[in-house]
C-alpha cells in the first residue's frame, strides 16, 4: 500500500521532471536566480577528489553519460567540442567552459573512465564515484538517469539518462541548461552572451 503510494509519487515526480524537460527541450534555458550546486563527493579520472569546490574558478558544462555508450555519448562530446571551438573564435579561453563528463555507471565506468577520456578528449574532466554521491549531484542539477539493469550479473545493460547539459558558473552556481542538438553556432552564441553577462555581474560583486 505504502509502497504503491511511493511508486505513484515517483511516477508523478518523474512526469513533472519530463514535462519540465519537454518545455526546455531544444532552446537554452537560464536558471534565474542561479542555484548553488549542493555538496557531493566524487573522484575525477585521475583519482583526485572532485566536489562542489572543484566547480569554482572556471565555467563548466556538465554532461551526464556512461562509458559503455559507443554511439550517442561520443557524438554529444563531439558536438560540445564543436560548440567550444565556435566560442574559441570570439571569447578569451579562460571563459570557455570546461567539459565535465559525469559518468553515472560506476561499476563499468570506474576502471575505464581515464582511458575513455584520454582517447576522445584528454582535456575533459570525467567524474564518477559512489552511487549515493552521484545521485546527490544529479539531484542538485535537476537531472535524471536510470540503469536498465535486470540483475547484478547483467553486463550489456543500457543507461537511460538526460541529454541536457548543465552550465555552471565559477561560483559553482547552476545558471543555465542547454539541450540537444547542440548546434555550434546557436549554442555558442547563447553561451557567449550568457557568460559575458554573468561575468559582468560577478565582477561587480
Amino acid at each position: 500500500m505504502i509502497r504503491s503510494a511511493i511508486a505513484k509519487l515517483q511516477i508523478f515526480f518523474l512526469s513533472v521532471a519530463f514535462f519540465t524537460c519537454a518545455a526546455a527541450f531544444e532552446s537554452p534555458q537560464s536558471i534565474d536566480p542561479a542555484r548553488l550546486v549542493g555538496e557531493f563527493q566524487l573522484e575525477d579520472q585521475y583519482g583526485g577528489s572532485f566536489g562542489v569546490e572543484q566547480f569554482k574558478g572556471q565555467w563548466s558544462m556538465v554532461f551526464v553519460g556512461f562509458t559503455s555508450c559507443p554511439d550517442v555519448c561520443p557524438v554529444t562530446l563531439a558536438n560540445l567540442e564543436a560548440v567550444r571551438a565556435e566560442m574559441g573564435f570570439r571569447m578569451s579561453p579562460e571563459r570557455i567552459p570546461n567539459i565535465v563528463f559525469l559518468a553515472v555507471d560506476p561499476d563499468r565506468d570506474r576502471s575505464v573512465l581515464k582511458d575513455y577520456l584520454a582517447y576522445f578528449h584528454p582535456q575533459y574532466v570525467g567524474i564518477t564515484g559512489r552511487e549515493a554521491e552521484i545521485n546527490k549531484l544529479i539531484k542538485s542539477l535537476g537531472e535524471f538517469y536510470r540503469l536498465d539493469r535486470k540483475s547484478v550479473d547483467e553486463k550489456n545493460y543500457n543507461v537511460t539518462h538526460t541529454a541536457i547539459v548543465s552550465i555552471i558558473n565559477p561560483e559553482a552556481k547552476l545558471v543555465a541548461k542547454i539541450s540537444p542538438p547542440f548546434h555550434p553556432h546557436k549554442t555558442g552564441e547563447y553561451l557567449i552572451k550568457l557568460i559575458n553577462e554573468q561575468m559582468r555581474l560577478i565582477d561587480k560583486g
Binding site: 519530463f18 524537460c21 527541450f25 535524471f144 543500457n158 537511460t160 539518462h161 541529454a163 541536457i164
Partner: peptide
C-alpha cells in the same frame, strides 16, 4: 533516441 531531453537506446 533523444526524447524530451532524455537519451536512451
Amino acid at each position: 533516441l533523444i526524447e524530451n531531453g532524455v537519451a536512451s537506446m
